[in-house]
Protein backbone atom coordinates (compact mmCIF):
# COMPACT_ATOMS: atom_id res chain seq x y z
CA UNK A 1 0.00 0.00 0.00
CA UNK A 2 1.41 3.38 -0.86
CA UNK A 3 1.00 6.39 1.43
CA UNK A 4 -1.84 7.84 -0.61
CA UNK A 5 -3.94 4.73 -0.21
CA UNK A 6 -3.24 4.73 3.49
CA UNK A 7 -4.33 8.35 3.61
CA UNK A 8 -7.55 7.58 1.74
CA UNK A 9 -8.27 4.73 4.09
CA UNK A 10 -7.81 7.02 7.08
CA UNK A 11 -9.74 9.80 5.37
CA UNK A 12 -12.74 7.54 4.93
CA UNK A 13 -12.94 6.86 8.62
CA UNK A 14 -11.45 9.91 10.35
CA UNK A 15 -12.10 12.71 7.89
CA UNK A 16 -12.33 15.41 10.54
CA UNK A 17 -9.20 14.40 12.35
CA UNK A 18 -6.74 14.69 9.49
CA UNK A 19 -5.12 18.10 9.41
CA UNK A 20 -2.46 17.75 6.77
CA UNK A 21 -0.97 15.16 4.53
CA UNK A 22 2.28 15.15 2.59
CA UNK A 23 3.08 12.15 0.45
CA UNK A 24 6.04 13.75 -1.30
CA UNK A 25 8.16 14.29 1.79
CA UNK A 26 11.20 12.13 2.49
CA UNK A 27 9.05 10.26 4.95
CA UNK A 28 5.41 10.60 3.80
CA UNK A 29 3.39 11.75 6.74
CA UNK A 30 -0.18 12.33 7.84
CA UNK A 31 -0.80 14.93 10.46
CA UNK A 32 -3.76 14.25 12.72
CA UNK A 33 -5.46 16.03 15.59
CA UNK A 34 -4.66 14.73 19.05
CA UNK A 35 -8.25 14.38 20.30
CA UNK A 36 -9.18 10.97 18.89
CA UNK A 37 -5.69 9.62 18.39
CA UNK A 38 -6.26 6.46 20.38
CA UNK A 39 -9.00 5.39 17.97
CA UNK A 40 -6.80 6.18 14.99
CA UNK A 41 -3.92 4.21 16.47
CA UNK A 42 -6.14 1.23 17.18
CA UNK A 43 -7.48 1.39 13.64
CA UNK A 44 -3.97 1.58 12.17
CA UNK A 45 -2.85 -1.39 14.21
CA UNK A 46 -5.89 -3.60 13.77
CA UNK A 47 -7.19 -2.95 10.29
CA UNK A 48 -6.23 -6.04 8.29
CA UNK A 49 -5.30 -4.00 5.23
CA UNK A 50 -3.09 -1.61 7.19
CA UNK A 51 -1.83 -3.88 9.97
CA UNK A 52 0.75 -1.52 11.44
CA UNK A 53 1.79 -3.94 14.14
CA UNK A 54 5.18 -2.43 14.79
CA UNK A 55 5.93 1.04 16.01
CA UNK A 56 9.45 1.72 14.85
CA UNK A 57 9.95 4.94 16.70
CA UNK A 58 8.01 7.40 18.77
CA UNK A 59 9.81 10.67 18.88
CA UNK A 60 9.08 13.90 20.63
CA UNK A 61 9.73 17.04 18.63
CA UNK A 62 10.23 20.67 19.36
CA UNK A 63 9.74 22.82 16.29
CA UNK A 64 11.16 25.94 17.89
CA UNK A 65 10.94 27.94 21.08
CA UNK A 66 7.83 29.84 20.01
CA UNK A 67 6.00 27.16 18.04
CA UNK A 68 4.38 23.88 18.92
CA UNK A 69 5.64 20.63 20.29
CA UNK A 70 5.00 17.47 18.36
CA UNK A 71 5.16 13.74 18.41
CA UNK A 72 6.18 11.67 15.41
CA UNK A 73 5.06 8.05 15.16
CA UNK A 74 7.00 6.01 12.59
CA UNK A 75 4.97 2.95 11.79
CA UNK A 76 5.88 -0.15 9.86
CA UNK A 77 3.95 -3.24 8.94
CA UNK A 78 5.86 -6.49 9.05
CA UNK A 79 3.20 -8.30 7.06
CA UNK A 80 2.39 -5.69 4.42
CA UNK A 81 5.86 -4.09 4.23
CA UNK A 82 4.66 -0.52 4.13
CA UNK A 83 5.45 2.49 6.24
CA UNK A 84 3.78 5.69 7.27
CA UNK A 85 4.57 8.53 9.61
CA UNK A 86 1.88 10.02 11.82
CA UNK A 87 2.48 13.47 13.22
CA UNK A 88 0.66 15.21 16.00
CA UNK A 89 1.27 18.77 17.02
CA UNK A 90 0.26 20.03 20.42
CA UNK A 91 0.31 23.31 22.22
CA UNK A 92 3.46 24.14 24.06
CA UNK A 93 1.95 25.08 27.39
CA UNK A 94 -0.72 22.40 27.44
CA UNK A 95 0.75 19.35 25.75
CA UNK A 96 -1.64 16.43 26.05
CA UNK A 97 -1.92 13.45 23.73
CA UNK A 98 -3.87 10.23 24.25
CA UNK A 99 -1.52 7.41 25.06
CA UNK A 100 -1.09 4.60 22.55
CA UNK A 101 0.49 2.37 25.13
CA UNK A 102 -2.22 -0.26 24.96
CA UNK A 103 -1.96 -0.46 21.19
CA UNK A 104 1.79 -0.91 20.88
CA UNK A 105 3.56 -2.05 24.03
CA UNK A 106 6.79 -0.41 22.91
CA UNK A 107 5.05 2.95 23.14
CA UNK A 108 5.10 2.55 26.91
CA UNK A 109 8.73 3.49 27.42
CA UNK A 110 8.96 5.69 24.36
CA UNK A 111 6.11 7.81 25.69
CA UNK A 112 7.80 7.99 29.05
CA UNK A 113 10.91 9.17 27.27
CA UNK A 114 9.01 11.85 25.36
CA UNK A 115 7.41 12.94 28.63
CA UNK A 116 10.77 13.00 30.32
CA UNK A 117 12.59 15.03 27.72
CA UNK A 118 9.81 17.17 26.22
CA UNK A 119 7.13 17.39 28.88
CA UNK A 120 4.42 15.99 26.64
CA UNK A 121 1.73 14.38 28.77
CA UNK A 122 0.23 11.16 27.48
CA UNK A 123 -3.26 10.84 28.86
CA UNK A 124 -4.19 7.34 29.84
CA UNK A 125 -0.65 6.13 30.30
CA UNK A 126 -0.61 3.98 33.40
CA UNK A 127 2.90 4.75 34.51
CA UNK A 128 3.86 8.16 33.24
CA UNK A 129 6.99 9.19 35.09
CA UNK A 130 10.49 10.18 34.16
CA UNK A 131 12.60 7.40 32.73
CA UNK A 132 16.06 8.74 31.90
CA UNK A 133 16.40 11.80 34.10
CA UNK A 134 16.07 11.54 37.88
CA UNK A 135 12.55 11.78 39.28
CA UNK A 136 13.11 15.23 40.78
CA UNK A 137 14.80 16.82 37.80
CA UNK A 138 13.47 20.22 36.83
CA UNK A 139 12.43 21.17 33.34
CA UNK A 140 12.23 19.32 30.04
CA UNK A 141 15.76 19.00 28.68
CA UNK A 142 15.14 18.65 24.96
CA UNK A 143 12.88 21.67 24.61
CA UNK A 144 14.53 24.48 22.73
CA UNK A 145 13.92 26.99 25.51
CA UNK A 146 15.28 24.73 28.23
CA UNK A 147 17.63 26.30 30.73
CA UNK A 148 19.52 23.83 32.80
CA UNK A 149 18.99 24.06 36.51
CA UNK A 150 21.98 25.43 38.35
CA UNK A 151 22.00 23.11 41.32
CA UNK A 152 20.75 19.60 41.84
CA UNK A 153 20.87 18.42 45.45
CA UNK A 154 23.64 20.90 46.14
CA UNK A 155 25.73 19.80 43.16
CA UNK A 156 26.51 22.28 40.45
CA UNK A 157 25.03 21.11 37.17
CA UNK A 158 26.56 23.17 34.31
CA UNK A 159 30.14 22.29 33.64
CA UNK A 160 32.38 25.04 34.91
CA UNK A 161 35.86 25.32 33.57
CA UNK A 162 37.64 26.70 36.55
CA UNK A 163 41.05 25.84 35.26
CA UNK A 164 40.86 28.58 32.64
CA UNK A 165 41.26 31.14 35.36
CA UNK A 166 44.49 29.67 36.69
CA UNK A 167 47.68 31.51 36.03
CA UNK A 168 50.64 29.47 37.05
CA UNK A 169 52.66 27.93 34.27
CA UNK A 170 56.01 26.30 34.58
CA UNK A 171 58.16 24.20 32.41
CA UNK A 172 58.02 20.50 33.08
CA UNK A 173 60.85 18.82 31.22
CA UNK A 174 59.60 15.39 32.13
CA UNK A 175 56.55 15.65 29.89
CA UNK A 176 58.37 17.62 27.25
CA UNK A 177 55.81 20.41 27.20
CA UNK A 178 54.87 23.26 29.39
CA UNK A 179 52.63 21.74 31.96
CA UNK A 180 50.57 23.20 34.74
CA UNK A 181 51.80 22.97 38.24
CA UNK A 182 49.34 24.52 40.50
CA UNK A 183 49.95 26.88 43.31
CA UNK A 184 46.79 28.91 43.39
CA UNK A 185 44.03 26.37 43.56
CA UNK A 186 40.34 26.63 42.96
CA UNK A 187 39.23 30.03 44.18
CA UNK A 188 36.74 29.77 46.96
CA UNK A 189 37.39 26.12 47.55
CA UNK A 190 40.48 26.18 49.74
CA UNK A 191 40.58 29.77 50.97
CA UNK A 192 37.19 29.53 52.57
CA UNK A 193 34.15 30.59 50.62
CA UNK A 194 35.09 33.96 49.21
CA UNK A 195 34.07 35.86 46.14
CA UNK A 196 32.22 33.65 43.70
CA UNK A 197 32.31 30.63 45.95
CA UNK A 198 30.27 32.46 48.54
CA UNK A 199 26.97 33.02 46.80
CA UNK A 200 27.01 29.59 45.18
CA UNK A 201 27.24 27.91 48.57
CA UNK A 202 24.32 29.96 49.79
CA UNK A 203 22.28 29.04 46.77
CA UNK A 204 22.90 25.36 47.11
CA UNK A 205 21.75 25.43 50.73
CA UNK A 206 18.58 27.19 49.69
CA UNK A 207 17.93 24.55 47.09
CA UNK A 208 18.37 21.60 49.38
CA UNK A 209 16.21 23.18 52.06
CA UNK A 210 13.47 24.00 49.61
Amino acid sequence: MNPEEIHQKLQAKFADEIIAVNTDALDPYIQVAPARFLEIATFLCEDPALSFKSLMSLSGMDYGAETELGVVYSLHSLAKKHKITIRINVDRTDAHIPSAETVWRTADWHEREAYDLFGIHFDGHRDLRRILCPEDWEGWPLRKDYIVQEYYHGMRVPYQEDWQKYETFSRNPERGHHVFEFESKVPGLLNGSQENGDDSAGKSEDRTDG
Binding site: L26, D27, S57, M61, D62, L142
Partner: peptide
Protein backbone atom coordinates in the same frame (compact mmCIF):
# COMPACT_ATOMS: atom_id res chain seq x y z
CA UNK B 1 13.66 17.79 5.89
CA UNK B 2 12.91 14.94 8.24
CA UNK B 3 13.69 11.29 7.87
CA UNK B 4 13.71 8.13 9.88
CA UNK B 5 16.43 5.77 8.70
CA UNK B 6 17.12 2.48 10.35
CA UNK B 7 19.75 -0.15 10.00
CA UNK B 8 20.61 -3.43 11.58
CA UNK B 9 23.14 -3.36 14.39
CA UNK B 10 24.16 -6.49 16.31
CA UNK B 11 21.49 -5.71 18.86
CA UNK B 12 18.69 -4.90 16.48
CA UNK B 13 17.22 -1.98 14.69
CA UNK B 14 18.97 1.30 15.30
CA UNK B 15 17.05 4.17 13.79
CA UNK B 16 17.94 7.82 13.56
CA UNK B 17 15.19 10.33 13.09
CA UNK B 18 16.93 13.47 11.94
CA UNK B 19 15.20 16.76 11.39
CA UNK B 20 16.92 19.68 9.79
CA UNK B 21 16.12 23.36 10.05
CA UNK B 22 18.31 24.29 7.11
CA UNK B 23 21.41 25.12 9.13
CA UNK B 24 24.67 23.30 9.75
CA UNK B 25 23.34 21.89 12.99
CA UNK B 26 20.57 19.28 13.18
CA UNK B 27 17.39 20.50 14.74
CA UNK B 28 16.59 17.13 16.25
Amino acid sequence: AEMYVRSETPRGELGFLIRSDGSDVPSR
